[in-house]
Simulated assay, not measured.
Amino acid sequence: MTPIMLSAGLVVLRPIAGQWHCLILRAYRNWDMPKGMPEPNEESLPAAMRETREETGLSTLELRWGGSYRETEPYANGKIARFYLAVSSSGDVSLPISAELGRPEHHEFRWVTFAEAQQLLPSRFEPILEWAQSMAGAPS
């Protein structure tokens, strides 16, 4: 049996024009949210924060909902992605160069509504998006 690989990421929300928008990232043709593998002895939430900072340049993130999370169903040889919910009220997204790759990990980013995110992200994200939307409610 293949061991489970648990990655950690964030559903990053920002209030735009009176409604929540999610940050999504594109690598080639695939849309995703900021996430990655924890380093040895690193807990999931700090890993999610670090990966988001490394992939987007966003460092001012508010964990309004604490350590609540949801996980995807297993995909790609048993991988599971654990997502926490964060608010980014300010700051510009950048796509910094990855030291390992020598180029940015992603090609594009977008702030999209939950409905747009459901259209662009793989179906494994549907329960994550539904959870995030129910947790967030209306922006304040």
Rank of each mutant, 00 (worst) to 15 (best):
S89R: 14
G91C: 01
P127R: 05
H106Q: 09
A117E: 06
E73L: 08
A115S: 10
R70E: 13
S123D: 13
W65E: 03
S123N: 12
T60A: 12
V87A: 05
L120F: 13
L129R: 03
T113R: 13
T72M: 08
E71R: 13
G78V: 00
M135I: 03
P122C: 10
F83A: 13
R82D: 05
V112I: 03
L129Q: 02
G57P: 00
V93L: 14
G102K: 00
E105H: 14
L58Q: 04
Q118F: 06
W65C: 06
A86P: 01
Q118W: 14
G57V: 03
M135R: 11
L95D: 03
L121K: 11
A76D: 13
L61V: 08
T113N: 08
E108W: 06
A117L: 07
Q133K: 13
R103P: 02
S88Q: 09
T60I: 09
L63K: 03
L129I: 11
I80S: 02
E108D: 06
L58A: 00
S90N: 04
R64F: 03
T113P: 10
E105R: 15
L61W: 05
P122I: 02
E108F: 07
H106T: 05
F109V: 05
E116W: 10
S98Y: 07
G78P: 01
A136K: 02
E116P: 04
N77H: 15
Q133V: 03
A99I: 08
T72C: 09
E100K: 13
T56D: 05
K79Q: 11
T113L: 08
F125W: 12
L85S: 03
F83W: 02
D92Y: 10
G67E: 15
L63V: 00
E130W: 12
L95P: 06
E62I: 01
S123R: 14
E116Q: 12
E126Q: 13
S98M: 06
R82V: 00
E105V: 12
L85Y: 07
A86R: 01
A86S: 00
A132V: 07
G67C: 15
T60M: 13
L121P: 08
A132S: 14
G102Q: 09
A81Q: 15
L61P: 01
L95K: 04
